[in-house]
Structures are given as structure tokens and as C-alpha cells.
Design a protein around this nucleic acid. Structure first.
Lengths: 202, 202
DNA sequence: ACGTTACGGTAACACTTGTTACGCTGTGCT
DNA sequence: AGCACAGCGTAACAAGTGTTACCGTAACGT
């Protein structure tokens, strides 16, 4: 209802931004390429967004909000914390159940890496990325705490950090070598990391 | 002896490339910026290299060869495979012993990420990155095999994949959030990953 | 001492980038 | 119907890009 046509255009442009970023990398991400991908001209793009950075930031924002909404839907009370954590992490490396279709396009990982590379020279984007990762860590730590109540908060956070490293690394590596880091490998690595993250206190 | 002045210039230019890449990101990596950093003009840069891609590839190559030479020096027979593995991985996340000086500049990680982002749109660079990671995996798998001879080759490779994910993830994350993923966190995460990688067969 | 030669800088080039100003067009209101 | 207005494309702009051709200069051999 509150969805105006302007929001619709912005979303289409954000989708085009993702596609271009995944295909051509950060150096190929130009306003003209985005416009061509969206089937319009640079005029429309800069009428919908103030400048290029606003376009990038909005696309990044949308990526984040989609991820969190999907993650929230997972934790609906029908599953235990361990299952929720597993499904959440598997989806984070694009290896969730029901994603076994032949097309192992690592587009999501490429988009992710592209935004991260753009953050290297854009403090606003970097701050946004940090916030997103903070939310990721908080979610993981909370799930670990629910699964292992005897653990202290500090220990949960530490284990969440380890999980984030595995997930981020798998995404990064699958970008460069999708054949070696295929769904089976990513799933296995995530399962292994969860096993140590949910191991009882030594 | 075989070190000509041309090689010297190329090395200086490669160092300048790293600096610029870490400071300004992949979109700020221009020939003029590299020339300014090296204290010369674009003329010299393009007299030493055929074009920009050659400069990038050489800088990438040098990064790889330095890493491997340092890793080879670690495995000189005075240490056991577990120690070598640990030192190797700690150095891979810029948290090796003797690197505790105050300046926790994550320049190396930024350079790494920059090259990876550049690989997204440069197949030659991507292939080089894949080769480097292949060597990394082989080294890890060999060390694991020497530490745990009862493990099969397949199992060693699987565990090496998990280690690579943790290392790559820590580097990537420290790029975006160096305060949260500081040396202590990286060291702790690496130690945890090694512990599960060197755990006896379940 | 003089010519040669290789090295490195200067400046121009064609092109692409983000951004802005302008003009057409179509839709809805009175 | 006539009109105002917003939406979108067109085209231009200045700045910056990789790349090339050209020129000075300083060292070196004879």
C-alpha cells in the first residue's frame, strides 16, 4: 500500500545494480551499465537517486533488509535454536535446503564481495557493512546462547566470531573458485563449524 | 646478481601498487596514483610494464611468491608439522609472533581483498588467485597429513578447506571491521580452527 | 670531443566517467 | 478542450582514465 512507484523503480534499479556488480565487478559498475541493465537511461537513474553513491547505498540497504527478514522468518518458534542456526548459516553461504537446483550461480557471493570492495573507499558503505555484520554476530551469539545456556555471553560472542569467519571465508572463496568451493564443500564446512560452535564447554 | 635495474623498478612499482590499492581501493587504483606513490610519472610505469593489467599481474605475482618463500622458510625441519601449520596460518592473518607492534594496519588484508575484487572482472587475475589458493590448500593438507598420519588424503583436503575458509574470512572481515577482528580475535579463531583440524578421527 | 643510445618525462590522444541542463511527451485536472 | 505539470530521455559538460607519440638529456663508447 505504502509502496509507491518510486520505490518500485528504486528496487528495479537496485536489482540491476546487483546484476552488474556480480557480472562486471566494482570497476564495471557504472551508471550507464546499470541503466542499460534496467532498460532505461542514466537520466532515470539520477532522477530516482541523487547520485551514484545513493544508488549503491540503497542497493546495499535492500540486500541487508532482505537478509534479515528472511532470517527472522526462520526463527518462528517451530524450530530449536540449533536448527535455526544451521538453516541460517547454510542460507548465508547459498547452500540452504531447496537450493540444490543445477544453477550454482554464486551471484550473491559476488555481489557481497563487490560491495565489500566498494566499502574500501566509501566510509558510509563500510559503516553499513559493519552494522550488518554486527547484526549477524548478535543473531548467532543469541542462538548459541539459547542452545547452550551454560555458556557465558562472552563465550557466545567468541564462538559467533568464529562462525562469521567461516561463513565469510566460504563466500569469498566461492567467488574466486566456485568449482572447488561448491555447495557440498560449503555445507560440510558450515556443519563442521557449527559442531565446534555448539560443543559443550571443554 | 641476476637482479637488473628493471626488476628493481618493477618491484618498487609493485609496492606502490599495493599501497594505493590498500589506501584507495580498486576504483582508486589508477596509473597516475601508482606513479605518484612511486615518485615518478605514468611514462615510467608504462615503460616498465606493457599496460595496466601487466602491472597488476606482476604485483599479484610478487605477493604470491613472497608468501610462499616465507612459508617455505617456516618449514625448515626444526619444527613439528603442527607448529609449522600454526605459524603459517597466524602469519596468513597477519597475527604471527613478533607482529604485536602497535600499528595493526590491515594493509595486507586490504591488498588481498583488492586483488580479489579485481579478479572478479579479470580472468587472468582470477586464475592466478585460484593457483595461489590451490598451493595454500596443498600446504595445509600436507601438514595435516604429517601431523595425523592415520587420516586419509581426502580427509586432509577436507580439513584444509575448512582452514582456508577461516583464514580467508578473518582477512575479509578484518578489512571491514579491524577493531572487532583484531589480532587477539584472529589468533583465537585460528587456534580454534586448528584444534578441530588436528583433532583425531572421531 | 663527439655522436649514439637508452631512459624517463611531457603532452596529447581518444574515450569513459559522473553529473547537469534542457526539451519532449503524455497524463490528469478543470 | 486546453493547460499545467511531472516523468523521462537527450545531449552536453568537465574531469579523469589508459595509452601513445614525441622530445630532452645524460651517460657511454670510440
Amino acid at each position: 500500500m505504502t509502496r509507491t512507484r518510486d520505490d518500485d523503480r528504486r528496487e528495479r534499479l537496485s536489482a540491476a545494480t546487483w546484476t552488474v556488480l556480480a557480472r562486471d565487478g566494482v570497476s564495471g559498475l557504472t551508471l550507464r551499465a546499470v541503466a542499460a541493465e534496467a532498460g532505461c537511461t542514466t537520466g532515470l537513474v539520477l532522477h530516482a537517486f541523487a547520485d551514484k553513491r545513493a544508488l549503491l547505498l540503497h542497493a546495499r540497504e535492500l540486500l541487508h533488509s532482505r537478509g534479515t527478514s528472511h532470517a527472522d522468518a526462520l526463527d518462528d518458534g517451530t524450530r530449536g535454536p540449533a536448527d535455526v542456526l544451521r538453516l541460517f548459516l547454510l542460507r548465508s553461504v547459498d547452500a540452504g535446503p531447496g537450493e540444490d537446483d543445477g544453477t550454482d550461480r554464486n551471484e550473491d557471493a559476488r555481489v557481497w564481495l563487490g560491495f565489500l570492495a566498494a566499502s574500501l573507499s566509501d566510509p558510509v558503505l563500510a559503516e553499513r557493512h559493519r552494522q550488518g555484520n554486527h547484526a549477524f554476530l548478535g543473531r548467532c551469539a543469541a542462538l548459541i546462547g539459547r542452545a547452550l545456556p551454560e555458556l557465558g555471553e562472552r563465550e557466545c560472542e567468541e564462538r559467533a566470531l568464529a562462525l562469521s569467519a567461516t561463513v565469510e571465508g566460504l563466500n569469498t572463496l566461492s567467488t574466486a573458485d566456485p568449482d572447488r568451493y561448491d555447495r557440498r564443500v560449503r555445507r560440510s564446512a558450515v556443519d563442521g563449524a557449527i559442531r565446534t560452535a555448539l560443543a559443550p564447554r571443554p
